[in-house]
Simulated scan of single mutants.
Amino acid sequence: MRQSGPVPEQLSKRSLVTVSHAIERAASATAEDGPLVVFALFQRLPYFDRERRRYERIAARAAATVVGLVGADPVLPPPGAYAVSLDENDDLAREWSVVALTPRFGGVLVARDRVEVASDASTVESGRLFDAWWSFRRDEALHEVLRLREVLADRLPADARAAVDETVRRVRDLPAAAGEARVDAAARLLAGRADRAYRTVPTPGRRPDAADESVRILDEAGMAHWTGADAVTASGVLPVALIGVSLGESAGAADRVVRRGAAREAQAVLGVLTGVLGPADRAVRLADREYLLILPARSEEEAVAAAQRLHESVAGQTRSYPFVSFAVHTVVAVTARRPLPVAEVRQALRWAVREDVPVATLAAAPPMV
């Protein structure tokens, strides 16, 4: 991301979707304002497929439409568009950028993936964080077209480069509109209100399971929603640490009848599980005394440390409350795959229980792109 121009700010994907769609809607509108050029970097194919119909309309009106994403070689772009393949390690592979430019209009969004998730995320996908800036000023869009034209030059066919160059020439022949600042200010107001309205939508499948209302435990339906299994998400962009947890009866544990009650036992268990979670993490109840902790953007080292803290916390509960006595087994995996490999983690957890391995780890699964 270039360093000149607007200073990037930390924004969630949820906050940027409205702006992205506004630029795309403007690009697909019918207008007599000269040749149109559009550049769009999507990171991964599922994000482009979600917008493919929109880009078919844009490409039908534009002089050049360039779509960049990782592994674009087998992608069939809309008629009139050009697909550019980005390598996994390409700096542009971390960008989610959209720019539309005509001699009379410009809109631009440039967002660089932080590979983090906001603490107040309602879903993992919507909470992904970016260093981003956006504008509806034509000259800002011109600068971004020139940047992308330069970095992608050797990957664009000659007719695409010629169309971009002709549009740039026409833009430079005309001064920017005097009222652009007013349009930009209005767009920022609308985007801000859309983001605040989104925050009021409740997350399905979440419910308080402890006296503390801030503690949330997901069921499997809630996990599917929160991790994006029932929406559009993509492998390869965000690592997620998974900790499978089995809480079995300890050998020699006191008979359940003489304990202080199942309710207090359940409350203690939930306190242990949620005690190792950060603000952006979630716990999922998979079965009786079987849980999955989901920690977005965590390394294997961090996840193993969390598993060890869980073991220590359970041991502390046993010392404090004799009626709580569990044999704890955990399995740690870090993956960028979507959907998450929950079945594999559960299978490994059964192995850990059978072999009595307190903390087992799995090699990070390679991203599927």
Score class of each variant (00 low, 15 high):
residue 116 E to H: 05
residue 151 V to K: 00
residue 122 S to Y: 09
residue 118 A to P: 04
residue 162 A to G: 13
residue 145 V to F: 03
residue 109 L to K: 07
residue 123 T to I: 08
residue 105 F to Y: 14
residue 142 L to F: 11
residue 115 V to M: 13
residue 158 A to L: 12
residue 142 L to H: 13
residue 130 F to P: 03
residue 130 F to C: 10
residue 117 V to Y: 00
residue 126 S to W: 03
residue 143 H to M: 10
residue 115 V to L: 08
residue 165 D to E: 15
residue 139 D to Y: 10
residue 122 S to H: 13
residue 136 F to W: 12
residue 152 L to D: 02
residue 148 L to R: 01
residue 117 V to T: 09
residue 135 S to A: 14
residue 105 F to K: 05
residue 100 A to D: 03
residue 102 T to Q: 06
residue 101 L to T: 06
residue 145 V to K: 05
residue 154 D to Y: 01
residue 102 T to H: 07
residue 97 S to M: 10
residue 157 P to A: 07
residue 143 H to T: 14
residue 150 E to L: 07
residue 146 L to T: 13
residue 155 R to T: 04
residue 158 A to H: 10
residue 97 S to P: 03
residue 161 R to D: 09
residue 116 E to P: 04
residue 108 V to Q: 01
residue 123 T to D: 11
residue 152 L to A: 04
residue 162 A to P: 05
residue 146 L to F: 00
residue 128 R to M: 15
residue 149 R to N: 08
residue 163 A to K: 02
residue 115 V to S: 11
residue 121 A to C: 08
residue 164 V to F: 07
residue 118 A to R: 06
residue 142 L to C: 12
residue 120 D to P: 03
residue 134 W to H: 15
residue 159 D to P: 08
residue 141 A to W: 01
residue 142 L to M: 12
residue 130 F to Y: 15
residue 124 V to S: 01
residue 107 G to L: 01
residue 140 E to L: 12
residue 161 R to L: 15
residue 163 A to Q: 05
residue 144 E to A: 09
residue 112 R to S: 10
residue 143 H to E: 14
residue 150 E to G: 04
residue 104 R to A: 15
residue 129 L to F: 07
residue 124 V to F: 12
residue 136 F to V: 03
residue 105 F to P: 00
residue 118 A to F: 00
residue 106 G to L: 01
residue 119 S to H: 10
residue 120 D to N: 13
residue 132 A to L: 06
residue 141 A to K: 00
residue 153 A to D: 11
residue 158 A to Q: 14
residue 140 E to I: 10
residue 103 P to G: 08
residue 149 R to V: 00
residue 99 V to E: 03
residue 164 V to L: 07
residue 145 V to I: 10
residue 120 D to F: 01
residue 132 A to G: 02
residue 114 R to L: 15
residue 144 E to C: 09
residue 133 W to D: 11
residue 118 A to E: 11
residue 149 R to W: 02
residue 149 R to S: 05
residue 138 R to V: 05
residue 131 D to N: 12
residue 103 P to F: 01
residue 135 S to D: 02
residue 124 V to C: 08
residue 110 V to F: 06
residue 122 S to W: 09
residue 151 V to F: 01
residue 116 E to L: 14
residue 106 G to E: 00
residue 159 D to C: 03
residue 160 A to P: 09
residue 123 T to N: 04
residue 166 E to F: 10
